[in-house]
């Protein structure tokens, strides 16, 4: 299963980390930790096969692609099918996957980013449903950035919400 741990500090995990950039996806097995930083209205989607301890972590920017030539991992709609395909190449069956979604915040309320974050989350849920992949946990919305550590060995998903203050405690 996937267990979400919300924290304001980065976890102290010594196992090797694999960093996932913006508009990117990485697949890793035990003992690796998949990491992605600074999700604003972007979403991170974890696809996890907990029996064989293999996972994909996607960091997608926007809900829908504008053209078929674009990087598929930039868009939620195309990123999930591509990641599922890559997992299948590694022998992972689609019906054994479980998922988690993190992100989709609206950092600046005055912009229309609120709708982008929300649409990113809605699109992810819709695509997961189409593929029959169960969404087991999510940490979405709100107005703060998030970073994600996914420990493939344990299924623990650390969601780091940093707290910044200008003055005072």
């Amino acid at each position: 299963m996937i267990e979400i741990i919300r924290t304001s500090r980065y976890p102290n995990i010594t196992r090797p980390k694999i960093s996932v950039g913006i508009g990117d996806c990485k697949i890793a097995s035990n003992p690796h930790v998949l990491v992605t930083y600074s999700l604003g209205s972007c979403v991170a989607i974890v696809l996890y096969e907990h029996h064989v301890k293999t996972a994909a972590l996607i960091h997608a920017l926007l809900p829908e692609p504008k053209s078929s030539n674009d990087n598929p991992y930039k868009y939620v709609r195309s990123a999930i099918p591509r990641a599922v395909k890559e997992l299948e190449k590694k022998g992972i069956q689609k019906n054994m996957l479980i998922a988690s979604i993190v992100g989709g915040a609206s950092i600046l309320k005055s912009t229309v980013s609120m709708s982008i974050g929300k649409r990113n989350v809605e699109t992810a849920k819709s695509v997961l449903k189409t593929y029959g992949i169960k969404l087991v946990v999510e940490d979405t919305g709100g107005s703060h950035s998030r970073s994600v550590y996914f420990d493939v060995a344990t299924g623990r998903l650390f969601v780091i919400v940093p707290k910044f203050k200008l003055f005072g405690g």
Binding site: L39, L62, S110, S115, I116
Partner: peptide
């Protein structure tokens, strides 16, 4: 103009909050 908002957060998240809505319609 709208009353300005003040946020303290990671630069990447702030910038993508402004840029991504534009990106959804323009390259």
């Amino acid at each position: 103009y709208d009353i300005p908002e003040v946020v303290v957060d990671l630069d990447t998240a702030v910038v993508d909050s402004i840029v991504l809505p534009i990106a959804s319609e323009h390259d």
